[in-house]
């Protein structure tokens, strides 16, 4: 396979990384809110959160993407397919992250929260200064594997016409009749990004050791 082809793939993987990164950030933020909603004693908050999580975890991402991509124009929102793709990925990962974080929030020791309560923290200070850092650290391994999952799932946005890594490989494969080389190269690039993300995750984990060996 020629360098030019490979460079095209590398360029397309930039879009793959960008789409995944944005989806991860949006998904994590939304997931935090949704998981807080799931844990709320208020049924008006917890029920919709639970349904949200159940739906987006229960439906294949491909179907979600097709649905969002085709639904948005019907609702009068004519957005580029990249936006629909990012929206779909974000919603899906938010559901998984919410479920992960829910477990994390439940594992924050009660006494640690009570200590903050005694120190006069207001609820939102307690949430952001105490609960979130501890829950985040507890769930970090799961959050990282979910981020890697999203990277791999981002290949599905090729079906709504976003020319990211998989779609680029597909286009080049059909024009050059070299599917073996191109898909193998694309797979290699996914692996590389994957390792990069895992490395970043380990770095983050080391930063959040909080003195433990």
């Amino acid at each position: 396979m020629s360098w030019t082809l490979f460079l095209l793939l590398v360029k397309a993987s930039g879009l793959t990384v960008a789409i995944s990164a944005i989806a991860i950030v949006i998904g994590l933020t939304l997931g935090m809110v949704v998981s807080a909603g799931m844990l709320s004693p208020n049924l008006l908050l917890s029920m919709p959160s639970r349904v949200f999580v159940s739906f987006f975890r229960g439906v294949p991402l491909l179907v979600q993407l097709l649905l969002i991509y085709n639904l948005l124009p019907l609702l009068g929102l004519n957005v580029p397919s990249v936006v629909a793709a990012v929206a779909g990925l974000s919603l899906c990962t938010a559901a998984y992250q919410a479920e992960n974080l829910r477990g994390g929030f439940l594992s924050v020791p009660r006494g640690v929260v009570e200590a903050a309560d005694m120190a006069g923290f207001r609820p939102f200070q307690l949430f952001w200064r105490i609960r979130v850092p501890i829950a985040f650290k507890l769930t970090l391994p799961a959050l990282v594997s979910e981020a890697i999952m999203i990277l791999k799932s981002s290949s599905l946005v090729s079906v709504v016409g976003v020319v990211e890594l998989t779609r680029m490989a597909q286009d080049l494969a059909s024009s050059t009749y070299k599917p073996l080389d191109l898909y193998a190269a694309a797979g290699g690039l996914y692996l590389a990004i994957n390792w990069l993300m895992a490395g970043l995750g380990r770095l983050l984990e080391r930063r959040l050791r909080w003195g433990r060996a």
Partner: peptide
Amino acid sequence: SQIGMVFQHFNLWPH
């Protein structure tokens, strides 16, 4: 705010 509490299990903030 006039009350301080010390717990059996310390309950320090680990982070």
